[in-house]
Computed example of a mutant assay.
Amino acid sequence: MKRLPIGIQTFSEIINENYCYVDKTRIIYELINNGKYFFLSRPRRFGKSLLIDTLKDLFEGREELFKGLWLENKWLWNKKYPAIKISFGGGVRNTDELDIVIKNQFKNIYEDYELKDYEITLSNVMFLSLIRKLYKEYNSQVVILIDEYDKPILDNITDKDKATAIREDLKDLYSVLKEADSYIKFCFITGVSKFSKVSLFSGLNNLWDITLDERFATICGYTQNDLETVFMEYLVGVDLEKVKLWYNGYSWLGEGVYNPFDILLFLGSASREFKNYWFETGSPTFLLKLLKERKYYLP
């Protein structure tokens, strides 16, 4: 029996260590072949980071990881693209920490791709330089993947001055995407909130928001078919109607999906206890803080 990938966001680990994997490669293939710049908003613990990591492995041409998946025989594996993956999942408390987080990730990418002449300067300048160096070194356009793009702002949302300062720094960073357009093959940005393109993605007018596009409604989360096939061995004796009542309450104008975190913890519990697993760790604390601050009634 394959193991449940509770808390695992690394695609290669799921594939190599015999974990259950819900094959999202068909919808990923459709996404890639329909545009260049994409934005997706989904709640926390809904599979966004795993999706980002899957995209990275795909563009880097790690064919061995996709054996047996829908995409295996449809992708041109001889063409590989360098990928810049930036994640803000760890959170920051101020602009200084944000700067450190960004530059540390740039440094790791320099090391991973064995690039020379790492020079510390402004983050946006370093970002553009990194894109150009990868393009030149590998003679290929670059893939940009940004996970939790909004978390630094949301972590400080109750401090207006801090949040504004962080937003401006992120705006400078993201402005590079427009300037580097000719060097970019594909760009995918995820987060839990939707900030206006004017305030944070200035100039990036071609960013396609697929959050409520029914074609990509199931790109994160588990469908009914996913549940009953991939996790079949874990469902013996389980009341599927009750599972659906508790956890299949998410829809983005397409087919409804189950919350992955709820499902994995429910199936992994010895007692198969029905409870709100996601809310205990994945609830939007920034929203709860604002509601309390403005004295909205919370039952």
Rank of each mutant, 00 (worst) to 15 (best):
E137S: 07
G254V: 08
D239V: 08
S129Y: 00
A270K: 12
F266L: 07
E273L: 09
I84R: 06
F59N: 05
S196G: 15
E111G: 01
E119Y: 14
A163E: 05
T190D: 14
D150P: 04
L265E: 14
V143H: 10
R93T: 13
E13M: 03
K79L: 14
L245F: 14
T95E: 15
W252K: 12
R42L: 09
I6A: 06
E280H: 08
V230K: 08
V176A: 10
I14K: 06
K197P: 00
W252P: 02
D99I: 13
N34R: 11
L291G: 00
L288H: 05
P5I: 13
M1L: 00
E30H: 11
V92G: 03
K197N: 10
N108E: 15
F88W: 00
L245Q: 09
G61P: 12
L267Q: 04
T218L: 12
G203P: 01
L173C: 08
S87H: 02
F38C: 03
Y138Q: 07
D181F: 02
T229F: 02
N205F: 06
L253T: 13
I14V: 15
F188V: 10
S269C: 09
T10P: 00
K295I: 10
I52H: 08
W75G: 01
N34D: 11
Y135A: 09
F11Q: 11
R294S: 04
L227I: 12
Q9L: 08
C20V: 15
R44F: 12
I144S: 06
F88T: 00
E293I: 06
D117Y: 11
K289Q: 08
T164K: 14
G35V: 06
P152M: 03
S49G: 11
A83Y: 02
L55P: 06
I15S: 02
I184T: 09
D53H: 11
L265N: 15
L4I: 15
R294V: 07
T121R: 15
Y222C: 02
D209P: 03
K185S: 05
N225R: 12
I131K: 11
V125Y: 01
D159S: 12
V176F: 05
C187Q: 05
D96G: 03
L51E: 01
K185Q: 14
K67W: 01
F127T: 04
K2Y: 03
V192N: 00
T25L: 06
S49E: 09
M232V: 09
L287S: 10
G35N: 05
R167S: 14
S123Y: 13
K85L: 10
E255R: 13
L287W: 07
F127R: 13
T121L: 04
F286I: 10
D112V: 09
R272K: 15
K171D: 03
N124E: 15
N206W: 07
G256I: 02
G89W: 11
E241P: 00
P260G: 05
R294Q: 02
Y222D: 03
K160N: 13
K185A: 03
V230A: 12
A165S: 13
L4R: 01
G47P: 12
T10S: 13
Y135W: 07
E111I: 08
K74V: 07
R42H: 07
G61W: 04
P152N: 14
L265R: 14
L227F: 03
L212I: 09
